[in-house]
Each structure stands twice: as structure tokens, then as C-alpha cells.
């Protein structure tokens, strides 16, 4: 249990530092969304966010499996 708590505190600190570093640079409401080019899962096909300009609004859902 102690090990788990120590690990949690350690990772929580790292995650907080990561957010403090990158969150100020992240887009806010009314900002232009940063463009990107990423591959579709299991494929080499690349998609750019800007590919969808002038078409539909877009929801970006960031996440992982765990």
C-alpha cells in the first residue's frame, strides 16, 4: 500500500508538472485550433485537421485505453 501511495504521489506530481508546462500553450475558446497530421489507426493514411475546414465542425476526443 505504501508503495502504491508513493508511486501515486510521484506520478501525480509529474502529471501536474506536465500540465503546467503545456496547458498555457493549449488553445482556448476563440483561438484557432493547432493543425496537425496524424495517421489513422492501423493504417498509413494521414489526416490533417485542416482537411475538414469549411465542412463540418469537429470534436476532438483525446484519450488512451487505461
Amino acid at each position: 500500500m505504501l508503495t502504491f501511495l508513493q508511486r501515486t504521489l510521484s506520478y501525480r506530481g509529474r502529471e501536474k508538472a506536465w500540465q503546467q508546462k503545456f496547458n498555457p500553450l493549449a488553445p482556448k475558446a476563440d483561438d484557432m485550433a493547432p493543425d496537425f497530421a496524424l495517421a489513422e489507426v492501423g493504417s498509413e493514411r494521414m489526416w490533417r485537421l485542416s482537411d475538414f475546414r469549411g465542412q463540418k465542425p469537429v470534436v476532438l476526443i483525446f484519450g488512451s485505453f487505461t
Binding site: 496547458n23 485537421l49 476532438l60 483525446f62
Partner: peptide
């Protein structure tokens, strides 16, 4: 997007 671990954004058709 400072997205880790999870985050949503809604972007209009002009970006």
C-alpha cells in the same frame, strides 16, 4: 492541446 490524460475540444468549421 495539453490533452493528457483525457480532454475534449469542439472546433467550428473555420478551425
Amino acid at each position: 492541446y495539453a490533452a493528457h490524460p483525457t480532454r475534449f475540444y469542439f472546433i467550428d468549421s473555420d478551425g
